[in-house]
Simulated scan of single mutants.
Amino acid sequence: MTDHPQADAFARYPSLAGRTAFVSGGATGLGREFVAQLAAQGARVAFVDVDAEAGAALAAEVAARGRPEPLFLEVDVTDVPALQSAIAQASARLGPITVLVNNAANDTRRAVDDIDVAGWDEGIAVNVRHHFFAAQAVRPMMRAAGGGSIVNLGSISAHIDLVELPVYITAKAGIEGLTRTLAREFGADGIRVNCIIPGWVMTPRQLENWVGDAERAKIMAAQCLPELLYPADVARLLLWLAADDSRMCTAQSWVVDGGWM
């Protein structure tokens, strides 16, 4: 959870105050920042993750900052019934969900020759399948509320020259197509569906596992803006898409990558 030194200079969104948001994969990385920033806007936030320790710590940390305490539920998004149950629990406790952030993913590198059928299916389940079923679960409550915002997380990896991520990249490319079809399916209910495509974001996981001097050099050479990208940069776009300020924006992929693509 990153507080920018000039955080007060960034936008506030009155329409998010009191709104219920649900974030998958919210305990660490990008999801952690999404939870914290939504709560800072006064939203009631529920989030799920498999990392129970990190999830509980984040909920307590947000509350300690004087913001609405998020509801954390330990859930594996590949277990669709458990995910659906968590969405039902969250709406029962916090109110109808009108902001859904489909964020959970796993970008562990695996060589093409090492992927079997079970590994392929697991990668699709953790990276894209849950997006559809979460959207399906929130649609009735968003319809009843007169609308809502669904934000799916894509990835720059589907557009650049990364290797050893064939399942992840396939899933992330699919999310862009899923976004467009769900926007058409849900539009009559006042539900907007958008996709954020982040660049290479400096989360602790990336810094610990995959970003070294060579990778930093590659990023600086590829981006128009010679600065590293952090979770807060992506979260500020998410807030705008979740809020009513973007009320006529749907079926789009929004890139925040420092000008790489």
Rank of each mutant, 00 (worst) to 15 (best):
M1Q: 04
T2E: 11
D8G: 08
D8K: 09
P14T: 08
A17I: 12
R19F: 07
F22R: 03
A27F: 06
T28R: 13
T28Q: 15
G29K: 07
G29V: 03
L30E: 03
E33K: 04
F34N: 04
F34I: 04
F34R: 00
V35Q: 03
Q41F: 05
Q41T: 05
G42V: 04
R44F: 08
V45W: 00
A46M: 04
A57E: 10
A57I: 10
A59H: 05
E61T: 14
E61W: 09
A64K: 06
R67W: 11
E69S: 05
P70A: 08
L71K: 01
E74A: 10
V77Q: 09
P81W: 06
S85E: 14
A86W: 02
A86K: 01
A88Y: 09
A90P: 01
A90D: 01
A90Q: 09
G95A: 05
P96Q: 07
V101N: 01
N102F: 02
A104M: 12
A105H: 08
A105C: 11
D107Y: 11
T108V: 15
A111W: 13
A111V: 13
D113L: 15
D113A: 15
D114I: 09
D116N: 11
D116Y: 02
D121W: 08
E122C: 12
I124P: 02
V128T: 14
A134M: 03
A134H: 04
Q136L: 04
P140N: 00
P140T: 06
M141H: 04
M141C: 08
R143D: 02
A144P: 04
A144M: 11
G146S: 13
G148V: 02
I150D: 01
V151M: 06
V151D: 00
L153N: 00
S155K: 05
D161K: 11
V163N: 10
V163P: 00
E164H: 12
E164N: 13
V167W: 03
Y168A: 06
I169V: 14
A173E: 03
L178R: 05
L178P: 00
F186Y: 01
D189L: 06
N194P: 06
N194L: 05
I196E: 00
P198V: 05
V201F: 04
M202V: 09
P204L: 13
P204F: 06
R205W: 13
R205G: 09
L207C: 08
E208C: 12
N209I: 14
W210E: 13
D213Y: 11
D213W: 07
E215G: 15
A217M: 14
I219W: 11
M220W: 14
A222L: 15
A222M: 14
C224L: 14
L225N: 07
L228G: 12
P231Q: 03
P231K: 07
A232E: 10
D233S: 04
R236M: 05
L238S: 00
L238I: 04
W240A: 06
W240I: 02
D244Y: 08
D245H: 09
S246C: 06
R247D: 14
M248N: 11
C249I: 15
Q252T: 15
S253L: 15
W254K: 10
V256F: 07
V256T: 05
D257K: 07
